[in-house]
Nucleic acid binder design. Structure first.
Length: 419
RNA sequence: GGAGGAGUGUCCCGAGUGGCAAAGGGGGCGGACUGUAAAUCCGCUGGCUACGCCUUCGUAGGUUCGAGUCCUACCUCCUCCA
């Protein structure tokens, strides 16, 4: 694979930018891509009202796919989500209701429309829901028509299953079936839309290839597989988790400011890789940024943050975040675009610093705020707070009636005192 | 169905002999050093109306001045036997 030199714009791009981990047949894919005949899908669960940066790589692959003249299919797992993916191993998690799934689906869709164009044209993306066919399956019929083609021997040898068995962890029957449903999805998408490529993270390889096999047995045209590397930071941590939890793509779940900060705080060793994967910048520009050394890498991080944020939140919001960051971190100035919460003057009079920190989301409880103060980690207007009993009324207001509360050196929230 | 073992701080792993808010890691957060990076060092890592009070060790009872620790029943998981 490493020696293959693709001719199609799609594979050239994906390869150069580091999206390709494994493919079923590079040469065949290349030919299809060059002819604009790829119809590729990626599946997403509807367990949350928003996707997060962990999903971003596959979304970018769909973007490039469309941009180079092929057709993307977004598959929402409305059916598989009803069953629930048990790999989280805490069976206690309640299954999402149908209403929740429907709401999540609609909410997730908004993020996609920023990356790919939906419509009825040949190369317009379409979104489908596997609930449309999975919920109508008849168990016996499914076993006879589809199940007969799955070899349990082979399934047992697949990494996803084998690892669980070796570690003596519970593997429920439904989870064991998961790959069958996913494989069936692939075949169904081929029959309905001529889909001939499934993409996903490298952990999906086994499931995807199972679908390819099933297609062959059921007489579909040759299906293909392409996986991207599993994304971890240079220090090995899983991508997408931050202090506040998942890094969501939807603006109502995570502000442009926080999203910008997430990328701005990338590790040095990740910057080049992230620029290639998560921005649309030409590779020449990225090469220039990659040449930066030492503290200059911060410039590359700012570009990364702004470009990545512009994709999800729009150019304007990204620029605002960048300027706010410059004023706050470099200039030491007050920028009213920082996250702000309003407090009435009457309320503020009695409010203690501990409660204020909790209201601002800088601490999870009064106790945590107190510990933070003990450790010297909480500042009001850039001055360390030393007294846990401090009242807001005793803090001098900044121009415009603001108090800037900070946790550590990175997290800032403005309290606006309104009449 | 029988025998044995296990479930610990709601992020994870994991010590724990009747006095336990519970050892030790990892992770996370804060501080120092830097460049809003990494590495390193230090501190914190149940809640509250806070020198005190409340809630935590699978679930529900019991013994005891006092239970994560002992007893009973139940639930779940693992191993071996049928």
């Amino acid at each position: 694979m490493t020696n293959f030199e693709p001719k199609s714009a799609l594979l050239q791009t994906l390869q150069a930018r580091g999206f390709i981990h494994q493919t079923s047949d590079m040469a065949a894919l290349d030919a299809l891509a060059a002819a604009g005949k790829l119809i590729a899908y990626v599946g997403y669960d509807c367990t949350a009202p928003s996707l997060h940066v962990g999903n971003l790589m596959s979304i970018m692959m769909l973007h490039w796919l469309q941009k180079t003249g092929n057709k993307p299919i977004v598959l929402m797992g409305g059916g598989t989500t009803q069953v629930g993916d048990p790999s989280g191993k805490d069976a206690s998690r309640p299954l999402a209701t149908l209403e929740t799934i429907a709401a999540n689906k609609a909410s997730i869709f908004r993020a996609f429309s920023k990356f790919i164009t939906f419509g009825d044209g040949t190369h317009d993306a379409i979104m489908v829901d596997n609930a449309d066919w999975l919920t109508k399956l008849n168990y016996i019929a499914f076993l006879r028509d589809v199940g007969r083609h799955f070899s349990v021997n082979r399934m047992l040898s697949m990494d996803s299953v084998k690892l669980r068995l070796e570690r003596e962890q519970e593997l429920s029957f439904i989870e064991f079936n998961y790959m069958c449903l996913q494989a069936y999805d692939y075949v169904e998408l081929n029959r309905r839309f001529g889909c001939n490529l499934q993409m996903g993270g490298s952990d999906q390889w086994g499931n995807i290839v199972t679908g390819v096999d099933l297609g062959r047995r059921l007489g579909t045209p040759q299906l293909h597989a392409l996986t991207c590397p599993l994304l971890t930071t240079a220090s090995g941590a899983k991508m997408g988790k931050s202090a506040k939890g998942a890094v969501w793509l939807n603006p109502d779940m995570l502000s442009a400011w926080d999203y910008w900060q997430f990328w701005r705080n990338a590790e040095d060793a990740d910057v080049t890789r992230f620029l290639k994967l998560f921005t649309l910048l030409p590779l020449d520009d990225i090469a220039r940024l990659s040449a930066l050394q030492g503290a200059d890498i911060n410039e590359a991080k700012k570009v990364l943050a702004t470009e990545a944020t512009a994709l999800v939140h729009g150019r304007e919001a990204a620029e605002t975040a960048a300027q706010t960051a410059a004023a706050t971190f470099s200039g030491g100035e007050l920028d009213t675009n920082l996250p702000t919460i309003e407090i009435s003057g009457a309320e503020a009079g009695e409010l203690g610093i501990l409660s204020a920190a909790v209201m601002a989301g800088l601490a999870g409880s009064n106790g945590e705020a107190r510990r933070l103060i003990t450790g010297g980690g909480l500042q009001a207007n850039s001055a360390p707070v030393t007294d846990p009993a401090l009242k807001l009324a005793n803090i001098d207001l900044l121009e415009g009636g603001f108090i800037k509360l900070s946790r550590g050196s990175k997290k800032h929230v403005l309290l606006k005192i309104v009449p």
